[in-house]
Each structure stands twice: as C-alpha cells, then as structure tokens.
Design a protein around this nucleic acid. Sequence first.
DNA 1: GAATTAACTTACTAAGTAGTAAGTATTTTC
DNA 2: GAAAATACTTACTACTTAGTAAGTTAATTC
Lengths: 190, 190
Amino acid sequence: MTPRNTDTKEEILRLGTELIQVYGYNAFSYADISKKLDVKNAAIHYHFPGKEDLLAGIIEQYIERYKELDKNLNQPGITSKQKIEAFITRYSLLAEQNKICIIGSVCSDYNTLPGSVKAKLSELIEMVLTMVGKVLKEGKANGEFDFSETPHTQSLLIMTNLAAGVQLSRITGQKDYTAICKSILKQIIV
Amino acid sequence: MTPRNTDTKEEILRLGTELIQVYGYNAFSYADISKKLDVKNAAIHYHFPGKEDLLAGIIEQYIERYKELDKNLNQPGITSKQKIEAFITRYSLLAEQNKICIIGSVCSDYNTLPGSVKAKLSELIEMVLTMVGKVLKEGKANGEFDFSETPHTQSLLIMTNLAAGVQLSRITGQKDYTAICKSILKQIIV
DNA sequence: GAATTAACTTACTAAGTAGTAAGTATTTTC
DNA sequence: GAAAATACTTACTACTTAGTAAGTTAATTC
C-alpha cells in the first residue's frame, strides 16, 4: 500500500554527507541516519554494508560532482576568473550553512580509515588540486591571472585557505571567511 | 611497594593530545589511554571526570604553551621573521610526525562539543590569530615584512595555510607542506 | 502467474563506550 | 601516630555502536 521509496540510497548519501560536514565522520552513527529517514538501521546496512562503504560512496559522489563541475566549466565563453569563482562558491555555500567540506572533515579522521577509503580520498584531493591548478595555469597563459608560485603550489594555497577557512570561520565568524575569499582572488587576479 | 606515578595526569594530557592529533577527538576512547599507561579507565576518570574535561584540559595546556612561546619571542633581539618562523616550526614538527594540529582536528568535531569547550577552543584560536597578527604588524612597521592585507587577514591566510597544510600533506606528501611554508614567507618578507 | 529480485523489517549480538560507587594502599598533614 | 587526602583499583552499569541472519512484502522478469 505505502509507496516504496526508491530514493533511500540517495537520501542516505545526502544525509551521510551532511552529517560529516556538520559533525564529522566518527561522530555520527547509522542510527542518526535511520532515525531521520524513518527506517531501521538494517536498511542502511542493506545499501552500505559497512560505514566505510558509505564513506566510500560519499567520496565517490563528491568526485563525480567535481567532474561535472569541471565539464560544465570547460565550455567556451567561461573566463578563468569565473571558473575559480565557481570553485570558491562551493565553499561559500558550505560556510553559509555552517558546514565544512568533506575533505577537511575526513582529513582529521584519516588514520582511522581503511586503505581503500584512504585511496579514494587521495584521489579526490589530487583531482581537485589538479582541476584548480589547470584553471590557474590557463588563466596565467591568457593574461587573466598573475602569480609567482607554480600552479600546483598556488592551488595548494587556495585549497588550504578555503578548507581551513570554512572550519575556522564556523568558530570565529563569517567575516573571516569573506576576508579570505577576497584575498584569494586578489592574490591571483591581474 | 611499587612507586606511585605522580605524572599520570601529565601523561594523560600528553597521550590525549597525541591521539587527537593522530586519530581525532571522536575516534579515541579512555581505553586507548588507559591501556597505553597501563592503568584502569577509572584512573583517567579520576583526573578528568568526562571526556570533555580532558579536551578542555588539553586545549588549556595548548593555550599555556602558546603564551609561553609568545613570552619567549617577545624578548629583545628577536626579529619578526624569526618569530614567524618559530610559529611555522610548530607546524613543521607536526608535519614530520604525520600529526595535525589540535585546532584543525577539533574544528571538524566542533558541533559535537559542549559549550564550555567550544568557548575554550574559540579562545585558543583568537589568541593564535592575535599573536600572529601582532608579529605581522610589528614586522611591517619595522620594515621586515610587506603585505597588502590587514594583519588580521594575513594571519588568517597563514593560519589556514598551515592548519590545512599539515592535514593535506599527510595524504599528498610532505613536499606539498614544504611548498606551502616557503610561500607563506615569500608572501610577507620584503 | 510463478519465480525471482529488490528493498526492506524484525530481532538479535558482540563489542565497545563513557561513566560510577565503593574499596584500598600510600602519602601527607597535623 | 591518628586523620585526612591522594591516587588509584575493582567491579560494575547503562547505553550505543556497527553489524547480521532470517523473515516479509512489493515489484519485476520470464
């Protein structure tokens, strides 16, 4: 009689992501998810046998979304500045919701993760660094950007500013995050 | 017969700090500490009734150590550059040991902390930002440094580079941390 | 329309979690 | 040297954790 919810798996991923962003990976339990979705904890285990499988799924989804963003940005007519701003916007949306990014959150728990998940996290980080580095290189080549570091190092600086920026500003206030964002652009824009 | 260990409390603080830096606050238990110290878990509860008391103690100790560092640095003959380098060195020591800083680690778990600990963490962060900001301002005034941001914003940039730097480089490799450190100095030194 | 599959629930378990009350041995204070 | 305080241990409790095996119900396939 009651219609089956075919989106349970998606909902678990969505809630899991949110819980990591708000509380941290080792601070939430399957019960937190099952209560909110009004299902039994065994339902979560059906979709993700172990907690590490859930985390792996969440990271994979993140990777897919970054690939999509990359695809959308690599279309004609989009300036390098717009690309970097699109990247920053992802973090700004987190900051507005008092969430932190998955990367920053899971990094703290890195040594509690099984090897397979460590590898996926590493893949995500390298992908993002490469993405940003590519945009920086492109922007420098077309005269939009100027900076003295290598694109890789500059992307490290931006990534660390943003990842820790959302973390710190959750405690010290949004103003600090805004200041960081402005400075990131100031550092590279001609 | 067996001599009493009067350093148990100090050892608990030391181990607790290490566990947070390596695994994260919500990933370690009193059992982890009691096993390593070869005492019963009740001994840990004797010194720190709740886990939040332990975290509060760890943050307080951190605050004290930063105050000491500040005191040691604010003596005649120490250049602003040396002061900033001393600050960076604290993070470099962590990076060498594959540890992350308490601030970065606990930030991820921020929303799982009781109000009293949140306040202490906030105090620590503001203190460090102020300390670094002061050195930056002084260095700019005496001609050692030059940067276009306010001292507060510049200290935010340095703090986020370092805090997330040790986190990321634990995954991507030490070379990335080294690159970040070099760039931090390059950004401010005349 | 029978068999299979997908998506669960029911009902558990074993292990770990923070935390406590009461007792003990040693050290310090008076 | 008696009393009190310190630093524990013993022995537990109540709760939460991830995880599982077996059963149920609805949808899909053939």
